[in-house]
Design a protein around this nucleic acid. Structure first.
Lengths: 228, 228
DNA sequence: GAGAAACTGTGTCTACCGGACACGAATTAG
DNA sequence: CTAATTCGTGTCCGGTAGACACAGTTTCTC
């Protein structure tokens, strides 16, 4: 009865003992409810206490299913990412573009998932599935293994960065107002910033997303065509 | 005597009252010691209690200088970023490349700063200075204001993503071992991943950084040359 | 100079967090 | 039928951020 590790929980390599009362909860229910709670009120407002209340159990009962908060959030992340879409056998460019836009939607649906992807952590089957899907779309590019991995880091980093900013953009009223106030107060020291912001701004984060994806794909195209 | 806001603290628009005992601490000392503590033991181990002990004062005395932890970390971030380097009037490509590598070094020196750049937050003078510096290097590119801002988001997102991974790479022994174990156990479902990892891996995060920067610059170059 | 006003640092208090641990009840293997 | 094992619970601990009252110090005003 050693406590299951995060890897065992993620990859499902555990088996229930037989004796003792049947568990009234399940790992799936706990994770699902935790995701719902984080979606509704953010990761900061997710506590074992509040999660247990939502499930109608005591806080300590959850520790029978998950060793601690870290393992819970790891499961939440992999579950929230979900399974990657099936690979459509087009060219690498549209394949990678679709990959980026799809995983962006996943991140946007669960903004708290982004901050869970930081630091050293065990990787889950779904997360590995997304990596696999991106690598598949890069098979015929002539890039080396390291380059393919670096490409994923590049695209994924951009997507995560934008998904974070999207959370910001939701209630931008007071925020942009204060930024404008700051710029009018101290704008003399930042002339290029004032110029860039006074030019008309078409779109928002969505444009930044596609702008970045287009630049990355163009840059990859330069490398790939020069290889062949 | 309303509590100073984060913006007022960041931009220094506050003045000391005259009556009462002279303060034994200073905002600068508190922020500097907080940065040292976070550098040494990470942001998670930075608490008002421990910071106060380090300074030789009680916890509550800090609240005379900073309204709360959020404002403290905002000051820490802007201080840790420091002032951007003076613009060297080269072409946009080397200018932006230098910018990316320099801010990467700043992030790497204070890894905790990265997680502070998430979410809606007031922007400080140094952070705005970095934006200004990047915009200056893009003046003669013919890009619109929105495109210039989107470019910064793209480059900055890549740099932050890599700086986070660099923290991970520090003690990779047990981590990669476990990833390898996972891949050998479930590798059949992820053939492209196995292939990519079995190819020889030259360099590490440093290569991923420069690979990404090169791709982004190449992609920008496509857009810029087609504009002129 | 005297008193009032304002400011500093401190001690106490609350509410919350993650988690260790012991215990009785439930269930099943032998 | 008994013993082993597991479940859910209650209690407890150390830690966190922060509110608030209070005493001492400094300075402005009369």
């Amino acid at each position: 009865m050693p406590a299951p590790t995060a890897v065992e929980l993620l990859w499902g390599t555990q088996q229930r003992g037989r004796r003792g009362p049947k568990p009234a909860l399940s790992l799936e229910r706990i994770v699902a409810e935790a995701i719902a709670l984080a979606d509704a009120e953010g990761l900061a407002n997710l506590s074992m206490q509040r999660l247990a209340e939502r499930l109608g159990f005591t806080k300590m009962s959850l520790y029978r299913y998950v060793p601690g908060r870290a393992e819970l959030t790891a499961l939440m992340l992999d579950t929230a990412l979900g399974t990657p879409p099936a690979h459509s056998p087009k060219d690498w460019r549209t394949g990678l573009k679709n990959w980026a836009e799809t995983i962006f939607e996943r991140y946007s649906a669960h903004p708290w998932a982004i901050e869970l992807t930081t630091g050293q952590r065990p990787i889950g089957p779904n997360e590995l599935g997304w990596i696999e899907a991106a690598l598949v779309s890069l098979t015929d590019t002539g890039l080396t293994g390291s380059e393919r991995l670096d490409t994923i880091v590049l695209v994924n980093g951009h997507v995560r960065s934008l998904a974070q900013q999207l959370v910001t953009t939701e209630s931008t009223a007071a925020y942009t107002a204060q930024l404008a106030e700051t710029l009018t107060a101290a704008g003399d020291a930042y002339p290029a910033t004032v110029t860039a912001f006074t030019e008309e701004r078409e779109g928002g984060a969505d444009n930044a997303l596609h702008f970045g994806i287009a630049r990355i794909l163009d840059g990859l195209n330069v490398l790939i065509t020069q290889r062949t």
